[in-house]
Amino acid sequence: MLKIAVMIKQVPDSQDITIDPVTKTLNRSQARNVVNPPDVNALEAALLLKDKEGGEITVITMGPPMADVALLECMGRGADKGILVTDRFFAGADTWPTSYTLASTADYLGGFDIIFCGEETTDSSTGHVGPGIAEFLGYQQATYVNKVEYEEPFFIAERDIEGATETLRIGKPAVVTITLNANAPRNPTLKKKIEAYKKGITIVANKDLKLDPACIGLKGSPTIVKDMKTVADPVKTPVKPGIEELDKVISVLVERGIVK
């Protein structure tokens, strides 16, 4: 019986985000919220582990109250419990307090044998939070993992290292971050969704965690955004695949001063 957690974040669907032609800022208002795509792979990796070894999966997210549907969606795919970490004290967190708050939640829930995260999010893509949680909790960690198996008392994590696979043996408890498309996530089923919606989720607030307000949320965030720049769209020159148009490729590269 493994005690498994999956950290998920609700993000605006990247397909729905447009760039305002005038202000050049991201327009998220029309965007549908979805579970951060690699987190769905993280959940699937957790489900595969549970299928084999047995256990209980808790999905955890820190976010606004409307993030509950993201948890219910994961429960519809087979997670057993949903925890929504939400409080105005947690708002405005950068990756440091996010990791700290999530680690504290894991601790508050009695700790886990293994915590699954996504490799990074599609809306901030720092990849900080998984390793952050591991450090705050003092767990072992493996990043960019495709597959996790259990050989008591170790986890065997297969890691993608661009062109090769590295197999790691890590001790318990551990944090792993799972890559996008590491596996083919199963669909939610009607029965599991009904159970999820009936069971509902559990809310964890700072009255439960009792964290120092100076260490969480906006106040606990060391990052200060100094400036933001909009990058111009790269100019695309279509060429046919193969060597036929190599001359064209070279002339374009020269023209743009990339090669001399």
Partner: peptide, 9 residues
């Protein structure tokens, strides 16, 4: 009503 989205009967 219990409303369940995203499921094809």
């Amino acid at each position: 009503a219990l409303v369940i989205p995203g499921i094809t009967v």
